[in-house]
Write a protein that binds this DNA or RNA. Structure first.
Lengths: 291, 291
DNA sequence: ACGACGTCATAAACGGCGCTTATGATCGCT
DNA sequence: AGCGATCATAAGCGCCGTTTATGACGTCGT
């Protein structure tokens, strides 16, 4: 007996007709007729009665078919187990913009080297998107720019990074070695409606040290849209230091902010998906972060 | 994926060694090695690690093997269901000597072909034994030589057959084209005490057409014992015509009887065992008998 | 009553699969 | 270094499972 035979009789029972069942199985009708005959001979009993209108299971056939369907389902589970292992050996790592800087890249590379059987897949998100993606199961772990709502997740801060101001080349503040937040008070500032208000206010340093509110410039969804508009002089932006290296455009100037709270990046994962793969990645990230 | 592959990997896991597993599966070791390789390629993952000491399941392989063992067990259940039905689907057909001649054989063959799920088992009985066996439930149906007591049974005459006289080769009547019953009056006649008196008298044509009684020869229990003694000249016997064909011994002569009532054979079954199987067999016998 | 249609069954032919034998590669042990 | 045990590869071949072609049978509509 082979699975092929069990799949055949299961399909025949479902369709009630050798012709249609054959089509569904991508074999010819005589092939199915012959296979059924040999299966019945092998079992020593008739599974189907033949009628001009099609076939009907015999009483004994019904029991055989029930058992056959279970065997087919059990075999499909073998394929599913294998698929899960093939697919489950994928670690989806979420991030936005430059993520955790070099740490993001080094962590993925190091983990991939230690686990060649695992495919580490980077997944980029728009502003604040990596936290939602993690919670919705679109990624397995994420480098999350704080502040972020990580309810239902576990996280550990693994990176801090000074902030800088992004200016168009030639801006009056572009040649400075550093500027304070208040010095940028009058400049329109890029913002986004994609992220939660707390995220936006944190990035904008709102309220400012002197108690004033920022001047809001154009809104944008992601880092490329933001930098395009800064480069053309529409506004300035606050960003992590690594962005200067990752998006080193000739028409942009990056100047350190002297008094802006540094960015903290957390590695986060869902509490109910604390798998060995995820734990292993977190271990690698912590190792690299402590060097 | 086929069951063969699942049985192979299950056996490999059990033996931990391709050579021993191959022996247990009655295939050669290279065949198993090749089959395993193709199975792993089909699944897209390695089920076993190979070592000089044998094979060991990988972590993923363990899960595949667990699922494979379940699928094999489920498939074995299909065979077990079939076996249970086969064991229950037995039709025991009783008869004596040549039964209803060719009809007996053709009926069993035709019914078996139409019902592969049923095992049709022939059961031979000594003289008159098939009627008692039927009533006692030793058989499901029987080709009964009449006359017979079929109280509690249903029956239908499905065969008639001329009678002949069995003579030792060289007997004074052996060369005749036909003889009358009265011409055999002086010859000792084989008889049996196994069957009812009515049966014995019918077969002996007692009383004879001229009112005389037969000359009783040796008694016997079955056809072989009878023919042995006829061949050695101890007596003659009356028999159905089919017996000449079925027991064509060189030391016997069969001569038609001109005035003996033909044998009538009935298909009989117990009235309280009017099952679909029995009814089906009766239908087949009637069909063939009417051809 | 007959022809058309739908359905299952059989036959012959053939591509390819799953096995065989022969043999090689590798590792561990002596 | 040689031997034995184990897995892997290659070439060849028998036979299985499929195909196309066609037949048998029952039902339905005309």
């Amino acid at each position: 007996m082979e699975l092929r035979q069990l799949r055949y009789v299961t399909a025949i029972a479902e369709h009630g007709n050798l012709g249609r069942a054959a089509k569904s199985l991508y074999v010819s009708q005589p092939a199915l007729s012959y296979a059924l005959k040999r299966f019945e001979a092998e079992l020593g009993l008739r599974v189907f009665d033949r009628t001009p209108a099609g076939v009907e299971p015999t009483a004994a056939g019904r029991e055989v078919l029930r058992a056959a369907a279970e065997a087919v389902a059990a075999a499909d589970l073998v394929a599913a187990v294998a698929e899960r292992h093939r697919a489950g050996q994928v670690l989806r790592v979420g991030f936005e913009a430059s993520g955790a800087g070099e740490l993001t890249t080094r962590a993925r590379a190091e983990f991939a080297a230690r686990h060649p059987e695992v495919r580490v897949v980077p997944k980029r998100f728009d502003w604040g998107g990596e936290a939602d993606a993690l919670k919705q199961g679109q990624v397995d772990v994420a480098f999350v720019w704080l502040p972020a709502d990580l309810t239902g997740c576990r996280s550990v801060v693994i990176h801090t990074e000074p902030r800088v101001v992004g200016l168009p080349r030639g801006h009056r503040l572009a040649g400075r070695e550093a500027v304070s937040v208040v010095e940028t008070n009058d400049e329109p500032l890029m913002w986004t409606d994609k992220a939660p208000r707390a995220w936006v206010d944190w990035w904008a340093v709102n309220p400012r040290p002197d108690g004033s509110a920022p001047v809001w410039g154009p809104q944008n969804d992601n880092v490329e849209e933001m930098l395009e508009q800064v480069a053309e002089g529409a506004a300035i932006c606050f960003a992590p230091q690594s962005m200067a290296a990752y998006y080193a455009r000739p028409d942009l100037a990056w100047v350190p902010l002297t008094d802006a709270e540094p960015l903290r990046v957390a590695l986060a994962w869902r509490a109910n998906a604390d798998t060995p793969l995820v734990k292993g990645f977190a271990r690698v990230v912590r190792e690299l972060a402590s060097m």
